[in-house]
Simulated assay, not measured.
Amino acid sequence: MNTIADPTPSTATGAQAPAPLAARPVPRRTGFARDTAAVFVRESRPLVRDPFSVLFSLVQPLVFLGLFGPLLVGAAGGDVAGTLQWFVPGILVMVALFGTASTGANLLFEMQTGSHERTLVAPLSRNALLVGRALKEVVPLMVQGTIVVLVAVPFGFSVNVPGLLLGLVVLAVFGIGFGALSYTLALGCRNRDWMFWMVHQTLLFPLMILSGMLLPLEDGPEWMRVAAAVNPLSYLVGAERALLAGDFGAPAVLGGAIAAVVTCAIGLVVGVRAMRRAR
């Protein structure tokens, strides 16, 4: 007599066989906004646990303010207040530049330790992995910019509070984009951290000098003025000087805002593409 085989597979202990792979539950992805918020919180936790790192990164801008500023005061005939009105906005742009240009080093460290690979396989949007990291750069930038202004006030710097707030917003928009570009560079320099720092140092100081944040470029050679005209930081510096002086209608404000938005858009587009291709 023929027997009919039991269609349900079993083991010697009577346990049921595992469900087919297709039937197993797959982690569901959440929305982009929630993913971005989760990445933002994760990246911000080291700042909360170690706030002194934010203050320590202020050493370089404060050194420029304390040592380079007096030289400018001497060149201006001892006009301390006027020099600070011109110089402090440039220092704020320096804070945004230095603070966001090095953020890719953190991603390099995560890639070397394997932490980044674990985030890539998490049920998170690749776009959110980049955008959340870039948004995190706004927090230390705001804190550091405020501290620089507070340090300069006792020495005669006069600040327009609404202008300061709007100026910090413009710097935050720029910082998001420039931080995203730093992350993109880190992704491209995987396992070659020396290349990251070589590109970092090669670009950082020319951008700073050709922005006019340290010295006026009006009396410089023609080639420097041409280079400054294509440097987004020069427009950002002009906007910060106008905003902190309360001149909201100055053409430089519009130019700086456009430069910040364009930098942010380019950084996020390039960074998101790089993050999507990351393995």
Rank of each mutant, 00 (worst) to 15 (best):
M1L: 03
I4W: 10
I4L: 13
P9V: 09
T11Y: 10
T11E: 03
T11L: 05
A12I: 13
Q16E: 12
A17P: 07
A22Q: 06
P27L: 14
D35P: 04
T36N: 05
A37T: 12
A38Q: 12
E43I: 07
V48W: 14
R49L: 14
P51V: 08
F52N: 02
F52T: 12
V54S: 10
F64P: 04
L67V: 14
G69H: 07
L71H: 04
L71E: 05
L72N: 14
G74W: 01
G82H: 14
L84G: 02
Q85S: 15
G90H: 05
V95E: 02
L97Y: 02
T100H: 01
A101T: 09
S102W: 11
T103S: 11
G104D: 03
L107V: 08
L107D: 00
M111F: 03
Q112Y: 05
S115L: 09
S115D: 03
H116W: 15
A122T: 04
A122D: 10
L129Q: 15
L129A: 07
V131R: 00
G132S: 06
A134Y: 00
A134E: 00
L135N: 00
K136T: 11
E137N: 12
V139L: 15
V143W: 08
V143Q: 07
I147H: 04
V151L: 12
V153A: 11
V153Y: 03
G156N: 07
G156Q: 12
V161H: 01
V161C: 03
L168S: 01
L168V: 04
L168Q: 13
V170A: 08
L171A: 09
V173K: 06
G175I: 00
I176D: 01
G177Q: 09
G179S: 14
L181F: 02
S182G: 10
S182K: 03
A186E: 07
G188R: 15
R190T: 10
M195P: 00
W197H: 13
V199R: 04
V199K: 08
H200A: 04
L203F: 11
L207I: 05
L207V: 08
I209E: 02
L210N: 11
M213Q: 10
M213K: 03
L214M: 15
L217V: 11
E218G: 02
G220D: 08
M224W: 13
A227E: 09
L233F: 09
Y235A: 15
G238I: 02
G238T: 02
A242K: 10
L244Y: 09
G246C: 02
G246N: 01
F248H: 08
G249E: 03
A250Q: 10
P251H: 11
V253K: 13
L254A: 15
I258H: 03
I258T: 05
A260Q: 08
C264N: 12
C264S: 13
A265Y: 02
A265I: 05
V270Y: 02
V272I: 15
R276M: 05
A278W: 08
